[in-house]
């Protein structure tokens, strides 16, 4: 029983780290319509920057400054945001799918850098011994698991409230206006390019934060944690939950992670020992087909975007 509870806490904590990343993607895609195919790259940047600053020093590695965990989270947030701002400045003025291609390139290149810049990233073995929150409780699995779950749940809640507030703020309204009718928004004197870059940077920053949180919860990182598969999972979470909807993003993260984990357990249990890799490939096929089917059959996801149209109490910010 106790084991079940601590497994549940572990599962939910990982799912909530994904929820943070999905919330970041929702700022970019759900609210602004910017397509990011390099989610894994931004997550990796946050994770590596945070590990670089907070882990203990090791031979042959330039990082390891032993900074507190919250500083690592902050640095991961900033680093993800900076990379996203750079990519956004470069591509957002061009056609929409150039951003997709460029972000894909970012994730390939970040992965390559993680693998090859050994002095900065630890190379193929990555970084271990990343400090974990509530490390003092590590002896008691249950208390440790619940404390981490509490921390993550509180972080997701705060992030959710901030993002909801932002979406209702004048900034969020302009973003939606640009997404729905760019020409009209431009006619009202809003620069679509500036708002899009800001939203892209904010989304990238949140992904970096999510990467840092994940790194600290798991305790080690390696280049193969950030393969294109991660991007795919995060997209599946957002699409299933319903893009444009922050609650849907969180629900999608937990649900898809549950399906993913359950099907992995099933694959391990059912597939014969020599056929595990094959069965895992089949699992990916099914999930890829499912994503396409959702796009075809129910593109709005489980929870639709909440209609925020209501009689405007004042037209201060909406008026030209």
């Amino acid at each position: 029983m106790l084991e079940l509870v601590s497994y549940g806490a572990f599962f939910l904590t990982v799912a909530l780290t994904y929820a943070v990343i999905v919330l970041g993607l929702n700022v970019q895609w759900g609210q602004t319509g910017l397509f990011n195919v390099g989610v894994a790259g931004f997550v990796a940047v946050g994770a590596y920057v945070s590990a670089f600053l907070t882990a203990a020093p090791a031979t042959g590695w330039l990082g390891g400054y032993g900074l507190p965990i919250w500083a690592g989270w902050g640095a991961g947030f900033l680093a993800g945001g900076l990379v996203a701002a750079g990519v956004g400045r470069l591509t957002i003025r061009l056609r929409a799918d150039y951003l997709a291609i460029t972000t894909f390139g970012v994730s390939v290149t970040v992965q390559l850098a993680a693998l090859n810049l050994q002095p900065l990233t630890g190379g193929p073995f990555g970084v271990s011994q990343i400090p974990r929150p509530f490390a003092a409780l590590a002896g008691e699995a249950l208390a440790f698991g619940l404390a981490n779950l509490g921390l993550l749940a509180a972080s997701v809640l705060v992030l959710y409230l901030v993002l909801e507030h932002l979406a209702r703020s004048p900034w969020g309204r302009v973003l939606r206006a640009i997404r729905e009718d760019e020409t009209a928004a431009e006619a009202l004197g809003k620069s679509p390019r500036r708002f899009r870059i800001e939203a892209f940077a904010l989304g990238g920053a949140i992904m970096g934060l999510g990467g840092a949180m994940q790194a600290h919860f798991i305790g080690f990182i390696a280049p193969e944690n950030y393969l294109p598969m991660v991007t795919f999972q995060v997209w599946a979470m957002l699409i299933v939950g319903g893009s444009g909807n922050n609650r849907g993003a969180i629900l999608g993260a937990v649900l898809v992670w549950a399906i993913w984990a359950a099907s992995s357990v099933l694959v391990e249990a059912l597939a014969p020992a020599g056929e595990q890799a094959r069965a895992a490939a089949l699992q990916t096929v099914i999930i890829g087909v499912a994503l396409c089917a959702i796009l075809l059959l129910r593109p709005q996801g489980i929870l639709r975007e909440m209609r925020r149209l209501r009689p405007a109490p004042s037209s201060k910010t909406d008026a030209p």
Partner: peptide, 25 residues
């Protein structure tokens, strides 16, 4: 366009893993 691009991303995953399933890596 972007929905189609995303669908192509899903198709890419499914087609590639399909080969991994049939022929192993």
């Amino acid at each position: 366009t972007i929905i189609v691009v995303m669908a192509s991303f899903g198709a890419s995953m499914a087609l590639r893993s399909g080969l991994e399933f049939l022929y192993t890596s």
